[in-house]
Design a binder for these strands. Structure first.
Length: 434
RNA sequence: GCAUCGGUGGCGGAGUGGUCAAUCGCAACAGACUGUAAAUCUGUCGGGCAUAGCCCUACGAAGGUUCGAAUCCUUCCCGGUGCA
């Protein structure tokens, strides 16, 4: 019995897009849905109440970051991630798998979730298997992978830490999100085919271990909860126990790099294991995303919810929706907002630009709906805040951007339900990418 | 008035005979950012052009010393400080 229930309400003709509802212990998520990222138990710059008003239904936090700070025990003692951060709706946690990549292969390099330049694939090489005191510094990275797990050097204080699939699941149980992800290895697109295959196989083994350990913990937690309930615990404890009884859902992650055959294989394998949902991960160069996604989705069962990890930009989200993805998370909305850029119907506007100093267009007029915030601001005012380094500039831009993406996805859902998703997507793309 | 220290690119501030169109910071201008190592990072930043190079004008002003001066000397102008 899964902790979540997914129901498809309507499919778009001519593509894989679908609208559905995902019921979690903390509420219903109408899909497709954008999941704002709150890595360290906060969506940077946005209060939970405001986030809800912008239309957010669910937030995603990060295992690696919360494990390091403040430590999962504190979050658990607070009553779980949602209670800790003051968010009443559904929550998710990422497994720390992405940090294997960003602190490992991608550390100190220009590669990230996306890479624009033509990538030079590295020749096959011996991977360090055993962690050595100096390996991390030798390789200029903070994470070193072996078959059992990953050894991290904390980016905060340099201390040494070890994640295995079991440990990641254990931490994520303590964090208590409604949905969490299996521990995976996100590879660099510069790795050769042989390594992509090797990493994918490892991710599959880790997926199995994550799922097994989740089942085991789930069993023990429920048994313990029943015992405590029977012993008539306090009201607070009972409420906490109800969360435990309602349980958590776990999503497995498809990898396979840019290679369609590996993506298909990975999708089939992950789908066969019995996860509550599927995540599609990876680091891409732009042109590979589409083919890798299509290849993977073609192998996935219809009835499981699908989450496109770390996506994305407006165009990529619509691409994902058209390819049958249901959930999206991305840091871009808050990050570019914090850095002074905003989404508009006609693309991204860099408010630091000289031309915005005297542009008295209303912020709400460049968005997708009239206003996300209930107060009108001009671009000139925003440009001033951004230019003068005021934190409110970052806050308002972040709110605007998260609101923009939430509106975009909500609009896509409406369009699917009304049978005009293709037009909706085409209209948006035409205006956005001039 | 005397003494003393100082006047460098939009600002602050290095440099004290050649490798100086001049370190660096700020501002400005442009760009990047897709499961957050990020309120961060990158590039440009005297003028001109055929822009991995070349030319011109420049370190308060004017002279001078020197093969060569932002750097040394003289005078003047301006500012800080001290003494009258």
């Amino acid at each position: 019995m899964s902790a979540i229930q997914f129901k498809i309400e309507k499919r778009a003709p001519g593509c894989r897009a679908r609208a559905g509802t995902l019921t979690t212990p903390h509420g219903v998520i109408q899909t497709p849905a954008f999941v704002p990222v709150g890595t360290k138990a906060n969506v940077k710059g946005i209060l939970p109440d405001a986030l809800g008003k912008l239309g957010a239904q669910v937030v995603l936090a990060n295992t690696y970051h919360l494990y390091l700070q403040p430590g999962e025990k504190i979050v658990q003692d607070a009553g779980g991630l949602g209670k800790f951060m003051g968010w009443e709706g559904p929550t998710m946690t990422d497994s720390g798998g992405f940090q294997v990549f960003s602190l490992g292969a991608a550390f100190g390099k220009t590669i990230s979730k996306f890479t624009k330049e033509d990538l030079e694939v590295s020749p096959p090489s011996e991977k360090p298997v055993i962690y050595d005191e100096d390996v991390a510094s030798q390789h200029g990275q903070l994470a070193v992978i072996d078959d059992e797990g990953v050894t991290f050097t904390s980016h905060l204080d340099g201390s040494l830490h070890r994640f295995t699939p079991e440990r990641s699941v254990e931490i994520q149980h303590a964090l208590g999100a409604d949905i969490f992800f299996a521990f995976d290895e996100c590879t660099s697109p510069t790795e050769p085919y042989e390594y992509q295959k090797e990493a994918m196989d490892r991710t599959h083994r880790w997926a199995k271990r994550s799922l097994d350990y989740h089942r085991r913990l789930e069993y023990e937690e429920k048994k313990q909860a029943r015992t405590l309930l029977l012993a008539s615990a306090s009201g607070h404890a009972q409420s906490a126990m109800r969360d435990v009884v309602s349980g958590q859902a776990i999503f497995g992650i498809v990898q396979g790099g840019r290679h369609e055959d590996l993506r298909k294989e990975s999708a089939r394998e992950i789908a066969s294991l019995g996860f509550d949902g599927i995540g599609i991960g990876g680091s891409f160069s732009k042109e590979d995303m589409r083919s890798a996604l299509a290849a993977a989705v073609g192998e996935l069962p219809e009835e499981l919810p699908r989450h496109f990890l770390g996506i994305g930009e407006p165009g990529d989200i619509l691409e994902g929706i058209a390819n049958g993805m249901d959930l999206f998370d991305c840091v871009a909305a808050t990050r570019i907002g914090r850095h002074g850029s905003i989404y508009t119907r006609h693309g991204i506007a860099h408010l630091k630009g000289e031309k915005y100093r005297t542009d008295f267009t209303l912020l709400s007029d460049v968005g997708l709906t009239k206003s996300h915030m209930g107060v009108e601001f001009t671009l000139a005012y925003m440009a001033h805040l951004v230019r003068s380094g005021e934190m409110l500039g970052s806050v308002i831009c972040s709110m605007h951007n998260v609101g923009f993406i939430l509106n975009l996805v909500a609009g896509a859902r409406e369009a699917i339900l009304n049978g005009r998703f293709d037009d909706y997507r085409a209209d948006f793309i035409r205006d956005y990418y001039i």
